Amino acid sequence: MSNPRPKRKARRDEPLFYEETKIQKGIWITPSTWDKMKQMAESEGISISELVERWGRHLKVPSHSSHL
């Protein structure tokens, strides 16, 4: 389930849920993927933007260790 909204009002350029504000980016995806993302977001009660944000925050960044 989604997190409840904070009691304070959302304002432009002020983070509401995270330590930084979101920025606009563009991606290219197929219509069927968009439909699946939309269905998933609706079932969670969140926006597609928030769905992508949550997915991205759970990604593990590969460590680049040097092999000597």
Rank of each mutant, 00 (worst) to 15 (best):
D35T: 11
K60W: 07
L59I: 09
E53C: 09
R57N: 13
T33Y: 10
K22P: 03
T21N: 09
R57Q: 11
I23L: 11
Q39D: 10
I23E: 10
E50Y: 07
L59Q: 04
P31D: 11
T30C: 10
I29N: 02
S49M: 08
S49C: 11
W28Q: 10
S66A: 14
P31N: 07
I27H: 05
W28C: 12
L51Q: 02
W34R: 15
I48D: 00
Q24F: 06
S63E: 13
R54V: 00
S63F: 03
L51S: 03
S43K: 10
K38T: 04
H64C: 14
S32Q: 08
G56S: 12
T30Q: 10
M40C: 11
I27G: 02
K60M: 10
Q39M: 12
I29H: 04
K38W: 01
L51V: 00
R54C: 05
M37W: 05
L51Y: 01
S47W: 02
S43C: 12
K60P: 05
S63K: 12
I23S: 06
T33G: 01
H67I: 11
S63Y: 07
T21E: 12
G56W: 08
V61I: 09
Q39N: 15
K60G: 09
R54Y: 01
M37R: 00
E53Y: 07
W34D: 15
Q24L: 09
I46M: 03
E42D: 14
H67W: 13
T30E: 15
Q24V: 08
P62D: 06
P31V: 06
D35I: 13
W28D: 07
W55Y: 11
L59V: 08
Q39I: 10
S65I: 12
H67M: 06
L51R: 03
G26V: 07
I23V: 13
W28E: 13
L51N: 00
D35L: 13
E53M: 09
